[in-house]
Design a protein around this nucleic acid. Structure first.
Lengths: 241, 241
DNA sequence: CGTCAGATTGATATTCATCAAGATCGGTGG
DNA sequence: CCACCGATCTTGATGAATATCAATCTGACG
C-alpha cells in the first residue's frame, strides 16, 4: 500500500472521493521520514514548511508548562494528518512528539495549498480533519472537567479503540497501545500513581486487560456506559461535506 | 457599522484582505437574529443549515453529561464565527448557548461554500478561524490538566482580555464579562464555591477587580506570570495564510 | 548478572467538591 | 417609594478525589 493511501482511506470514511480527487492525492509528492520514540516531530514555536501525515505509531501534541509540567492535548494515530495546523496557523503554539516510533509522510505546504485551490472539496475535507481533532479536543475538555478519573480513562479507551478500528489497527476488542502510564497521566491530567490505580480498577471490574502494550477491551458497551461515551463527535459517517 | 464588518476586522487582524475579498464578504447575505440569555443558538445533534457570526454578547459551547453535569468547552465573543463547524461537520456534537443576550448574523452554508470556492484564500481564513478555536481549546486542556484553580482562572482572564481587546471591547485593563460564577465554574470544570474562593484570592492579591459584570485587570503582567500565559496561541499576528 | 524504565504499593498531604446556611443585590409589583 | 423575590455571592464545616513522596517489585535487555 502506498503511504498516502492511508489519507484516502481516512477521508473516504467521511465523504465520497471522486476518482479525480483520489488521483490528485496519490500524485502528491511526499518524503517519508522516521522518528524514534521521544523525538520531536514538530517543535513548538517554529514555523514548519511541511505538514505530516502519520503512517504508523502514536504521536502526541504537548504543551509544556513553565514549571516543567506537561500536558498532552491530543493523541494522533496512523492516518491522522498531524499538523495541518501549521499550514494555516504558521507559527506552532505547541509541539508534536513521537510517543512511540513513528513513520510519517511529509508534504510541502505549497503542494497542499495548490491542491486545495484546485479542488475546494478536498480543502474542505482537510478542514474537516482538523475539525474532528477539535471535536475530540472538546470531549477531552468535558472529560477533564466533569468526569472522574475512572470515567475519563474509560472514555479515552473507547475513543482510541474506535479511532484505531477505522484504520484497521483495532479489531475484536484488541489494540496495541504502546503508551506508558506516565504518558497516560500526561494525557489525562492525572498523576501516574492515580492512573495506575484507576487502571487496576478497570481491570478488577473485568472491563479491560492491559498487558505490556496489548490492550483488550473486554466489554466495550459497559465501558461506554461507564464513561457516558457518545461517538457522534468522531464523525464516522460518510456525508457530502 | 454593518454587522458583517466585524468579520472583516477579525480576519484582518490575522492576514491582509484584498479589496475584492472585502467586497465579497460585505456582499454576503445574512439574517440578523437575537437570542436571550439562556437560549440555545445551536442545538446539539442537529444539522444546522447556517453558520452564525456573533455580533454581540457571549456564547458558550456546552457538552451536557448524562448525570446532568455541564462542561462549557469554549467561550465565543463578538466577532467570532461561531459554528463554522457545522458547515463541514454537519451534525453537531455539542450545543451553543447564549450565556448573555446575543446578537448574531446567520449566513447560509451554501453562501459560505460558494464564497470559499471562489476565493480559496478566504476559505483558508475561515479555516484559520476554527483552528484558532482549536488552539484556544488546547490551552484550556493544558490549564485543566496541569494548572491549579488559581492559575487556571488567571489564564482564562488573560485570554479573554486579549480576545476582547481585538474587537475593541476591552481597554485599559477593563472589560465587561456578564458571566455568573456558576457559568465560570462550568467553564473551568470546578465547583461554583471553589470559583468563588479562587476569585477572592485574585482580588486579595490585588490582581483583579470584579464588580457585577465589570472586570478590571489591575496587573496584567503579574496575572500572566502567575498563570504562565503565552499569547502565541491566539495568533494575533498578521501573516500571509 | 546488573541496570533501567516502568509498574505497583502504602502512607500522608492537598486540592477541590459537597452540603447547608446566610448575606447581598438587582429588579419588580404594589 | 418600599417590600419582597429570586438569583447570585459568600462563608463554614466536612468529606472525597487526587497528588505527592518514598519504597519495592518486575521484566526486558545488554
Amino acid at each position: 500500500m502506498p503511504a498516502i493511501e492511508l489519507l484516502v482511506r481516512m477521508l473516504s470514511r467521511r465523504d465520497v472521493l471522486s476518482e479525480a480527487e483520489r488521483q490528485r492525492i496519490h500524485a502528491l509528492p511526499f518524503r517519508e521520514k522516521l522518528f524514534a520514540k521521544g523525538e520531536s516531530i514538530v517543535v513548538s514555536h517554529t514555523e514548519p514548511q511541511e505538514s505530516c501525515l502519520l503512517l504508523s505509531g502514536i504521536a502526541g501534541r504537548e504543551i509544556i508548562l513553565e514549571d516543567g509540567g506537561r500536558q498532552i492535548t491530543a493523541l494522533q494515530v496512523a492516518g491522522d494528518f498531524v499538523d495541518l495546523h501549521g499550514l494555516v496557523l504558521k507559527r506552532m503554539d505547541h509541539g508534536v512528539l513521537a510517543l512511540t516510533d513513528c513513520q510519517v509522510a511529509n508534504v510541502a505546504h505549497g503542494e497542499l495549498i495548490k491542491l486545495g485551490e484546485d479542488m475546494p472539496h478536498l480543502m474542505r475535507l482537510f478542514w474537516l480533519s482538523t475539525l474532528i481533532d477539535g471535536a475530540i479536543q472538546r470531549n477531552w475538555t468535558a472529560s477533564m472537567g466533569r468526569r472522574n478519573a475512572l470515567s475519563q480513562l474509560a472514555h479515552l479507551l473507547c475513543e482510541l479503540y474506535l479511532r484505531l478500528e477505522v484504520v484497521g489497527l483495532a479489531k475484536d476488542g484488541q489494540m496495541r497501545l504502546h503508551l506508558s502510564q506516565l504518558v497516560l497521566a500526561d494525557v489525562l491530567g492525572l498523576s501516574a500513581v492515580h492512573v495506575n490505580r484507576t487502571l487496576q480498577s478497570l481491570r478488577r471490574q473485568g472491563l479491560v486487560e492491559w498487558l505490556g502494550s496489548d490492550v483488550t477491551i473486554r466489554d466495550f458497551d459497559k465501558l461506554a456506559e461507564l464513561s457516558d461515551f457518545d461517538q457522534t463527535y468522531l464523525n464516522l459517517i460518510r456525508l457530502p461535506r
